[in-house]
């Protein structure tokens, strides 16, 4: 145990810190290797050593030679992620509001969400694919794939909203109503702004989970791929560092999104708690 004021840290601290350090290395080491290798020289291969440094393989992505429809799949992925984000945020926030009280069917919806989360992705994709086949609708990224991705993002959104609402003090709403705000005004002026950091977290999950989704999307994608499916196809037929270049690019996009989300959450929190003590504790 870390005892405050005991001065020296116990040996377990160093053992655990070393373990943690190794884990972080394990987590980021291989990723950083492909980031470096994506700058491989034109004659370089899939492994070290580096044969010079260049942007050749990034260029190859945008050229029309061997690397498929990178620009198109990237655009589709971003668009799809934005749509998924919007639906996930709206539906999760509404459901989060609803789930503050038990209602008829709440248990059913809860278990449906949990099972939707743990069902093997390919199986879900198969089901969605079958549904569209039976309905005679051609699967497409904006219909069947969108639906399949929502089964992955909505449960996460709901679970985050549970966590967010468990810390939300209902007195804020009563205070707003006491001060003359109607239901909509309370929601818009008080509840949503207070929950904003949590809502941004839901948006982050909605975007990134969609942007990187692959097993659920594989079957119901239709004729035009999203980026992860394009990468999946490349893993089996592209044997050049272009694959790494693509990996570096898509990860960079993810990092930008993560950074924007986390920074905005941090800014909101900082604005609320610059100096001073926290007073919004629910108890």
């Amino acid at each position: 145990m870390h005892r405050p004021g005991s001065g020296r840290r116990p040996w377990t601290f160093y053992a655990l810190a070393a373990f943690f350090g190794l884990y972080v290395l394990f987590l980021y080491g291989p990723m950083s290797a492909i980031f470096i290798l994506s700058f491989q020289g034109p004659t370089g291969g899939l492994t070290f050593p580096m044969n010079g440094v260049s942007l050749h393989w990034f260029g190859a992505l945008f050229g029309q030679q061997r690397t498929g429809d990178f620009a198109g799949s990237f655009t589709r992925s971003i668009l799809l992620a934005v749509i998924v984000l919007s639906i996930t945020v709206a539906a999760s926030v509404m459901a989060g509001l609803a789930f503050r009280r038990r209602f008829l069917g709440s248990t059913l919806v809860f278990y449906m969400a949990i099972f939707s989360l743990i069902i093997p992705g390919l199986l879900l994709g198969l089901g969605v694919g079958l549904m569209f086949q039976f309905l005679g609708i051609k699967p497409a990224w904006y219909s069947s794939a969108l639906g399949a991705q929502l089964t992955w993002t909505l449960p996460f959104g709901l679970l985050i909203m549970f966590a967010v609402f468990s810390r939300f003090n209902p007195f804020y709403e009563e205070a707003a109503r006491d001060l003359g705000a109607g239901y909509g005004q309370t929601l818009w002026n008080v509840v949503l702004p207070i929950l904003l950091p949590g809502i941004i977290a839901v948006a982050l999950f909605g975007f990134t989970l969609s942007y990187d989704e692959f097993p659920r999307t594989l079957i119901p994608i239709g004729s035009r791929n999203t980026l992860p499916l394009e990468i999946w196809a490349m893993t089996t037929n592209v044997t050049s560092p272009a694959l790494y270049a693509l990996g570096t690019l898509t990860t960079a996009v993810s990092f930008v999104v993560i950074a924007v989300a986390l920074t905005s959450i941090a800014l909101i929190q900082r604005r609320r708690t610059r100096r001073g003590t926290r007073t919004d504790a629910g108890d």
């Binding site: 990723m31 492909i34 990134t208 989970l209 990187d212 990468i231 999946w232 893993t235 898509t250 990092f255």
Partner: peptide, 8 residues
């Protein structure tokens, strides 16, 4: 890393 691509 959770928010980045599994395939990558």
């Amino acid at each position: 890393p959770f928010w980045t691509s599994n395939v990558i």
